[in-house]
Write a protein that binds this DNA or RNA. Structure first.
Lengths: 201, 201
DNA sequence: GCCAAAAACTAACGTATGTTCGTTAGCAAG
DNA sequence: CTTGCTAACGAACATACGTTAGTTTTTGGC
């Protein structure tokens, strides 16, 4: 047999991306092999190459698409939050946690497989990450300038906050004891309590 | 030639562990290969097997030894902090950050290569991690019982705090803008601000 | 209904990898 | 000085991996 009845390029391509996301998430990029990936999709290893350029390009596409989607969604959430700095900060934290709860695999890969990207791809991804971090840093700077936040060092605070919020990916399981909203709310509360100036509650 | 003049088992074994730590830290366990490791140590690949059982056993040893050392050091730091819950919590946070600054490679591997451990090893390591997390959870429970802390959910708070404090490993570089003490202090401040009951400053 | 493009197949290549085997030279105890 | 253990060596094995080549069947536009 050759081409399979009912096969569709777009459908297979999506199946490959979904399966790759899952496998890389579970095992890591280096430990995932294309034979397992093909088996998961239900095709032969060589057939993958009708849809991907190389294994490396597949990883880059997954990471790149995730980061651009995250940036766009974040900007939309900030836009919706209005002009007030504290409101925007809350919105950023809430959106970050919720997004990370819902896209655990994408997030985890984008954070932990950076080193698996070859130099040109690595550079582009790092630039996107920096752009994302800049969103938070800008908010902290604004809050400091307005005298409503109090942190010793903005960069350290930004990284600490991002680390804390991203941490949900490592332990969250759907259908757990707490609702997503409860998890989001508590993280927002921890962040705000940590950075708010004592007087301005 | 066969045995090299001046070669010593203990010295080579330590060199292997150090090199493995560095390579796994940089590339990940799956991406590290024993030929590169041997080259780093300056011996032939087959000679590794005079000192390690398998690649997997090497990873387990590294992770296991790190976690037991971390547990012991943490208990010593808590002991030194005295009986007061808030002091112990500060001591825990400070020690965690400082230890993580100094042992970035060990920590990173222990956190990110869990999935590379085969089931029996995985189980033992997870048990050690849980024991460590329990130290923090116990402190938070005590602080809540004393009415001096205010968090919505102790487990979530514990994981969030650990994620935040462990985050330093991903961006810290020795010789950077801030001293270790400054980084530690700020993280302790962020944690305490996040969990302290408003009245009890 | 025909035909180029798409999307799958089978087979294989070249290399990389973890590990084993047999051997040999240095070291320390008797 | 001998002898047994240690720690290295070189060579190789078996497998696994990413990828390519060539082929075959289905699909969709004319």
């Amino acid at each position: 047999m050759a081409r399979i009845a009912g096969s569709s390029g777009a459908r297979t391509a999506e199946a490959i991306r979904r399966a790759a996301l899952r496998l890389i998430w579970r095992q890591g990029y280096a430990a995932m092999n294309l034979r397992d990936l093909a088996a998961e999709v239900g095709i032969q290893p060589s057939s993958l190459y009708n849809h991907i350029e190389t294994k490396q390009a597949l990883l880059f596409d997954l990471v790149h698409d995730h980061l651009t989607a995250l940036l766009a969604a974040t900007d939309a959430a900030l836009e919706a939050a209005g002009p007030d700095t504290l409101e925007r900060l809350r919105a950023f934290a809430a959106h970050h946690v919720l997004y990370h709860l819902e896209k655990r695999a994408e997030v985890y890969i984008a954070n932990s497989e950076l080193r698996a990207l070859d130099p040109p791809n690595h550079g582009r991804v790092v630039a996107l990450r920096r752009a994302y971090e800049a969103r938070l840093i800008t908010l902290l700077e604004a809050g400091m300038a307005e005298g409503r936040l109090a942190v010793a060092d903005i960069t350290v605070a930004a990284y600490a906050i991002l680390a804390m919020l991203t941490g949900v990916c490592t332990w969250y399981r759907p259908g757990g004891r707490l609702s997503n909203a409860e998890i989001v709310d508590q993280h927002v509360a921890l962040v705000m309590a940590g950075v708010l100036k004592r007087s301005a509650a």
